[in-house]
Nucleic acid binder design. Structure first.
Length: 473
RNA sequence: AGCGGGGUAGAGCAGCCUGGAGUGCUCGCGAGGCCCAUAACCUCGAGGUCGUGCGGUUCAAAUCCCACCCCCGCUACCA
């Protein structure tokens, strides 16, 4: 039987600084999607990586007084480390400075040129000679560059433009089926309806980046370069996995993914990705993450102190679509109140009872309290926080069942079987979110982590009390 | 300014579309139960003018309509 393919990506991150918990959030979301689909028997390809060609990296490197390559290598290392410690099951990690990426980018840009969608025009704007870059009105304070406190000069220079405006009607047809959630979709539709102007896709006077085809005076605009990672990252598996099933991105880069990316693909003659999942931001103590406020949480720091599953769970309980609050206190509270007290304690008490009295196969009536259909619906809609709430509601039911049936008094092996079988179902459902915990439970109770196992009765085996799953903090 | 989302118990949410006693969930707080378990688990309880308008519609408004106040998001070549 041929497995159905499933291709999921995250945005690629700038490596101008160390990762923050927003990066951890996005990677964990995408990982949960990847694992959920693998669990359901799909042939999954999961791509993540870093954007090394951005000017921001160059600026940050200059500030640090290190050469760009060295700087980028060092920071990319932090992102790789983050993925490893978070247990991110990516199939490939792309770095856009890689040669094979540049080849694909040039190939696609050439296709767009051949289509006649790129033309030489004039770019006009306000150029700050201090920054050596164009500024938008938004960048300026009282008409001056805030960095250098001087007025930028008006410049007009040759540049290549992509005929974005040409795709307006097609985009308006595509976007409604492509972008979730509703709110993000509507924002984009409104803006596209207001009209599109062509996009400047070349950069002059920069050394870092990918050469423009047939014109060495220019580099390719880094966003075009960056977006193409979703194809170049597949390397020789492009035929098999493209188009992407889900791009997971943050709300800040919605425009590029909702409008520019499909337009480029249409022009170059590629199939379009199916879903764009736009997630919200994490706020720390109710405030935006910002370095000047000093409220950045270092996820690597958290992962040094806490288990990966505790970090993953605490992130996944944040709303996917809305901005939500996150902090170390929230992590600790979710770990203690939900993971340790509910799940960990349930497993612990059932193991202890089963070890003493054994289990005996019977029909599991308790499992009717598990709202499987609803959980599936939530996961398929990417509402992981709600799915987890439902799963934990069932864990509450299990704890209540222990309380009601008093197996420590009755020594009822059948009740203990029902509980063990229910724990099996729970652990399988939790696999996409907490893979290592799920594995530990599977080992203790003797079952395979496979979605089909949920409905198959648990094989009776000797159960022993294992290690505590979650320590309290 | 334009467009969109929101204001419900100490905190965070659901309920609103399709009106029917303020109903529910998570955390926190108070009392009790249990003794299998990680001082965990279970039960009960306190706590709310559902942003404001003694606004409108209605037998009936958190829910529908209007006005106002406050918060947040988006407004492209910033990568």
């Amino acid at each position: 039987m041929i497995k159905k393919k499933f291709y999921v990506t995250t945005a690629i991150d700038y490596v101008n600084a160390k990762p923050h918990c927003g990066h951890a959030f996005e990677k964990t979301l995408a990982d949960a999607i990847a694992r959920w689909n693998r669990l359901n028997g799909k042939d999954v390809f999961f791509l993540t990586g870093v954007d090394e060609n951005a000017q921001k990296n160059v600026q940050a490197a200059e500030k640090a007084g290190i050469n760009v390559k060295e700087f980028v290598d060092k920071n990319t290392g932090f992102f790789l480390d983050l993925c490893k410690k978070l247990n991110i099951s990516y199939d490939d990690f792309i770095r856009t400075s890689a040669k094979d990426h540049a080849v694909i980018v040039q190939k696609i840009v050439k296709k767009i040129i051949e289509k006649g969608d790129i033309y030489l025009g004039k770019y006009e704007g306000y150029y700050c000679t201090g920054c050596e870059e164009y500024k938008t009105e938004k960048d300026l304070v009282d008409g001056k560059c805030p960095e250098h406190n001087k007025e930028p000069e008006f410049r007009k220079e040759e540049a290549y433009f992509f005929k974005l405006s040409k795709y307006q009607d097609k985009l308006l047809k595509i976007i409604p089926k492509y972008v979730i959630p509703e709110q993000r979709k509507n924002e984009i539709i409104k803006r596209v309806e207001e009209g599109l102007t062509d996009l400047c896709v070349s950069r002059r006077n920069v050394e870092w980046g990918i050469d423009f085809p047939n014109d060495k005076n220019f580099k390719i605009y880094v966003w075009v370069d960056a977006l193409i990672n979703y194809i170049s990252g597949l390397k020789n598996k492009e035929k098999k996995y493209w188009p992407a099933d889900v791009h997971v991105i943050g709300k800040g880069i919605n425009w590029f993914h909702s409008v520019i990316w499909p337009a480029l693909l249409l022009s170059a003659g590629y199939e379009l990705p199916k879903t764009l999942l736009v997630h919200g931001y994490l706020n720390l103590g109710g405030k935006k993450i910002s370095k000047s406020l000093g409220n950045v949480i270092d996820p690597l720091g958290l992962l040094g102190k806490y288990d990966s599953d505790s970090v993953r769970y605490s992130l996944l309980k944040c709303s996917v679509f809305e901005d939500s609050d996150y902090s170390e206190e929230i992590l600790i509270s979710r770990n203690n109140n939900e993971l340790a007290n509910k799940l960990g304690n349930l497993v612990s008490r059932v193991e202890a009872l089963a070890e003493k009295y054994g289990i005996e196969k019977t029909e599991n009536k308790l499992i009717s309290k598990l709202k499987l259909k609803e959980i599936e619906k939530y996961v398929n809609n990417y509402e992981f926080d709600k799915a987890l709430n439902e799963i934990f509601a069932f864990i509450d039911e299990c704890n209540l069942y222990v309380q009601d049936k008093k197996p420590w008094e009755t020594h009822d092996k059948k009740v203990l079987y029902e509980l063990a079988d229910s724990i099996k179902a729970t652990a399988i459902l939790l696999y996409p979110f907490m893979p290592s915990t799920s594995g530990k439970i599977a080992e203790q109770f003797g079952f395979k982590i496979d979605y089909k196992e949920i409905s198959k009765p648990l094989k009776v085996s000797k159960i022993k009390k294992g290690e505590i799953l979650f320590k309290k903090m």
